[in-house]
Design a binder for these strands. Sequence first.
DNA 1: AAATTTACTGAACAGTGTTTATAAAAACAA
DNA 2: TTGTTTTTATAAACACTGTTCAGTAAATTT
Lengths: 214, 214
Amino acid sequence: MGVLARKEREKLELRNQILEAATELFLKEGFDKTSIRSIAEKIEYSPATIYLYFKDKNEIFRAIHDKGFDMFFAKLSESQKIENPYMRLRRMGDLYLEFAFEHREFYDLMFVMRAPIEARNENGNIDWVCGMRSFKLLQDTIVECMEKGYMRKMDLDVAAVTISSLMHGMASLYIRERLVMYDQNILPYLFRDAMDNLMQVFKANPMTSSFTEN
Amino acid sequence: MGVLARKEREKLELRNQILEAATELFLKEGFDKTSIRSIAEKIEYSPATIYLYFKDKNEIFRAIHDKGFDMFFAKLSESQKIENPYMRLRRMGDLYLEFAFEHREFYDLMFVMRAPIEARNENGNIDWVCGMRSFKLLQDTIVECMEKGYMRKMDLDVAAVTISSLMHGMASLYIRERLVMYDQNILPYLFRDAMDNLMQVFKANPMTSSFTEN
DNA sequence: AAATTTACTGAACAGTGTTTATAAAAACAA
DNA sequence: TTGTTTTTATAAACACTGTTCAGTAAATTT
């Protein structure tokens, strides 16, 4: 049955064409200007055709959102070559911000925009896998830090949420232009110091632990 | 010239009517469903009339955004009765999250949405006053903490950005549904611990300062 | 009473996401 | 090679959206 296989392939190919066109438009023109009609024109199909491959506009951006998380995971994984988990965690912070700065639109779609979230809600099950892969990387690193004594023992969820929140806060305040009172060129330095500061919260300091523990 | 005064008053009154209707719709139906036509219908005027009082839809939401910042400032100011600046700073954190949880739509408009920001960009000058008032409250409290020895001396901008980013990160990840992997009921407790942790970064601990200073 | 200013609106423009009936093409069966 | 069925694509329409502008009616001034 080579016919079915070919059809399957063709079907997937057009789906990818739609996704590529949508991504290109999204990165160049933004979400609002990436209309179903503009995508259709780019791939030289009728707008209605797109609805044979995606349920709605949100589902298209849900797919782009997923690809963004793949890129994000790859970026964060660059830290894995670092042996020391505490240094690795610190490096993940830099990589996080590098991703946010280099791929603002993707970051925005993944962590801020409503569209990709609304797509899965109608699906029924809230499949949260793609983002979870990166979050698990963070969790595992924290656990390793605590196990190997680089970090004082504390609730994993609290540590993970604290770190994620600081990172996302900086990235999203910048991307959504809520830090315009600062010279945009010094922001990376401010963010760096903020990360360094936070790292100290978690640091296990044997010499002072008896004083700071309570 | 009582006539002119009355006309001025009437002009302002309709402007407020538009704003009230828009706010009500915004809180009930969200940004997208608050159309110019729906606002017009609510106040029983033609859609075109709205454009005699506001340049565009963004300008309407820019005004609502400003009112939100007034509420926000009032909320944060509740902390001012606390004498100790370190305790006051900690209280401001709680009040920040209370505001975000109680007025999600306002918070979203003020700190996440693009619409109100785009409004001022066309104005020319980026009048950043409304949000700055609250930010200054934070800065002043930090300065007071450092001056009175409750907080170790460090760069004010770094401290302010660190605190703002953590707060906004928690609030916006929650509001934009990026923390759905957690039981939503425990989030307030996680956030509380995250704030307590961060406070420790800044804490001036005389007994251990000689060890931690470099 | 006439002229002018101010306030308002109907209608249109150019777009949006989405659905549906219809047509064409491809695959399968006799 | 027919005829039938399934798959794939689309034109056209629906119900919206923000925004503009010519034209009208009312209020104010001369």
